[in-house]
């Protein structure tokens, strides 16, 4: 049987019945092209997952990055900032 992306999707998304699943797994074991298609499907699935829904860990990281941004990208920062401030005052 020639498997398509629809069959792969049915397998990965848990929509196959037990017997169909077993036939499919046998086919994957012996068919490198099907294995490649399966990897392709899983790759696209994780691509879709990656940037689509809020990830609490991403939120925590963004908090850290914002704090670091304040420290390293501050307009007031830099070694010369005290001198610049003094010069600014003289004006």
């Amino acid at each position: 049987m020639k498997y398509t992306i629809k069959n792969i999707a049915r397998y990965v998304e848990g929509a196959m019945e037990e017997r169909e699943q077993s036939y499919f797994e046998d086919a994957v074991a012996i068919d490198p092209a099907l294995r490649e298609e399966m990897e392709f499907y899983l790759d696209k699935r994780s691509t879709l997952r990656m940037n689509m829904w809020p990830d609490p860990k991403k939120g925590e990281l963004v908090d850290t990055l914002e704090q670091m941004n304040e420290k390293y990208f501050s307009e007031k920062g830099g070694i010369l900032s005290p001198i610049k401030r003094l010069l600014g005052r003289k004006k």
Binding site: T47, M50, K58, L65, N69, E75
Partner: peptide, 23 residues
Amino acid sequence: TVAEAAAIFKETLTELFLLTKYK
């Protein structure tokens, strides 16, 4: 601007995080 540089740096690091986690 410095603010634009900060935003780009943060966005790129966040993308690296996502790629590490999901890919």
